[in-house]
């Protein structure tokens, strides 16, 4: 043992160092989340958690599946590209189970005015009216069918 004579303290120190390193690895293994670093410096599982959240707006396709009559009317009019939920609100619950909740009919006085109240700030090509002058308090749907609003376009009620 010529060379290693009186080197016991070095071996003990090395052993201690190795043990400490293993302890570090062990603690790190428990503390660092399992998917951390899979795609980058973050927890990859978070992506799945965010993607798994429930949806509240069902999307236009869900409406088309059942309400074909209304979609057909809408597709012929000026509102063809306005999605159902833009006016009727978030209805994923209704799409999942139509009996669980039924949408309430929007108040056209508020709904139509939201987009169509005249303002110099709006793009000039966009149809705008001053509600008071235009209808004098008569509800919009008296003359316009909201699903196909042009009066001469077969959309009149």
């Amino acid at each position: 043992m010529g060379v290693f004579k009186d080197a016991g303290h070095l071996f003990r120190f090395t052993g201690l160092f190795v043990l400490a390193f293993l302890a570090f690895l062990l603690i790190r293994g428990y503390v660092v989340p399992k998917t951390f670093g899979q795609y980058g410096h973050y927890r990859a599982a978070a992506i799945g958690e965010i993607a798994g959240r429930p949806v509240k707006f069902a999307g236009h396709k869900a409406c088309e599946d059942c309400h074909t009559d209304i979609v057909d009317v809408k597709m012929k009019g000026k509102h063809a590209h306005v999605n159902c939920e833009a006016c009727h609100g978030a209805l994923a619950k209704h799409a999942d189970d139509p009996t669980s909740m039924t949408p309430t009919k929007p108040d056209t006085a508020v709904l139509c005015a939201r987009c169509h109240t005249a303002s110099a700030a709006k793009p000039t090509g966009f149809p705008q009216v001053n509600p008071a002058d235009h209808s004098n308090g008569v509800p919009c749907e008296t003359c316009h069918n909201p699903h196909s609003p042009a009066i001469d376009g077969g959309g009149a009620k």
């Binding site: 993607a51 429930p54 509240k56 707006f57 999307g59 306005v82 999605n83 833009a86 966009f126």
Partner: peptide, 23 residues
């Protein structure tokens, strides 16, 4: 904003795009 990640991964568009009346 998550760009409605829970929607776009299911083939839907974002809530803001869904609700935008003018595209």
């Amino acid at each position: 904003c998550t760009l409605c990640y829970h929607r776009i991964t299911k083939g839907l568009t974002t809530a803001c795009c869904e609700a935008c009346p003018t595209g």
